[in-house]
């Protein structure tokens, strides 16, 4: 039974040991290059001035916030549907990182919004759906820790993650409609191909750096989670042996 439960994590840990240094190095290199390009090489925007540089942390963190949630939900699905032992571990490990990216996205968005729109916060469709995403993350983690039995908390949180996944596009779509009823879209729209390469390069470099950071920290947290589970099983076995 114990062998079955850890067969997969053991293979995963071997993979993690190989991959972790590569992801860490790539994260540092990409972020350093992204910072150099973003702060020194890329020009100030003719409309937004120097504040456009906030984009190089804001947009990648928004991407990673959404990506991390899909990892949480994907892990939860594989845990509930296929009983994959790693699914829940990965979901549990990805949630705090995703929360961090969402927080960065919200704070940098406010810092970008104040000089550009004159307000720290507007009830714009994008902002609202990211805020809801933040609450979904917090709810997921609160539910994880709310039970005396960690297995039970894991299962309940997995169900919540899946429900939240269904809800994310609905929120996005509904607040889009809600917003356009009240005011025209005020968000600085960035049409993908129209962006100049001098801005695209640092943006993509930072995005790659954030993605590698996510992968590296995810591997670390999975390692911690696997160790914690092993400790739990060993303690349980010890208790059974004594009784």
């Amino acid at each position: 039974m114990v062998m079955h439960r850890f067969a997969n994590p053991a293979r995963f840990l071997r993979f993690a040991a190989v991959a972790l240094p590569w992801f860490s190095a790539a994260a540092v290199l990409c972020m350093a290059a992204g910072l150099a390009f973003g702060l020194f090489v890329s020009p100030a925007d003719y409309q937004q001035g120097e504040t456009v540089r906030i984009m190089y942390v804001h947009v990648p963190s928004a991407w990673m916030a959404m990506f991390a949630y899909t990892v949480v939900a994907g892990g939860s699905i594989s845990a509930l549907v296929w009983k994959h032992p790693l699914g829940e571990i990965v979901a549990r490990a990805a949630a705090p990182i995703g929360t961090g990216f969402t927080l960065v996205c919200l704070v940098t968005g406010a810092l970008w919004g104040k000089p550009m729109w004159g307000a720290w916060w507007v009830w714009d469709a994008r902002l609202t759906s990211v805020l809801v995403l933040f609450f979904l993350y917090l709810g997921y983690m609160a539910l994880l820790g709310a039970f005396d039995d960690p297995v039970r908390g894991g299962r309940a949180a997995s169900i919540l993650a899946i429900v939240g996944l269904v809800n994310v596009p609905i929120i996005k779509w509904s607040v889009d409609w809600w917003n356009t009823l009240h005011q025209p879209a005020s968000v600085a729209r960035m049409d993908g191909p129209a962006i100049h390469s001098s801005m695209l390069v640092p943006l993509l470099l930072m995005a790659a750096g954030f993605a590698c950071y996510f992968a590296a920290v995810l591997l670390l947290r999975v390692r911690a989670e696997v160790a914690a589970r092993r400790i739990r099983t060993l303690r349980l076995a010890a208790m059974e042996a004594e009784s």
Partner: peptide
């Protein structure tokens, strides 16, 4: 940063700290 230093550096600092 063109008069917006607090905002730009604040954003980068937030990201770095988190």
């Amino acid at each position: 940063m063109g008069g917006h230093g607090g905002f730009v550096w604040g954003a980068y600092a937030t990201a770095a700290i988190v």
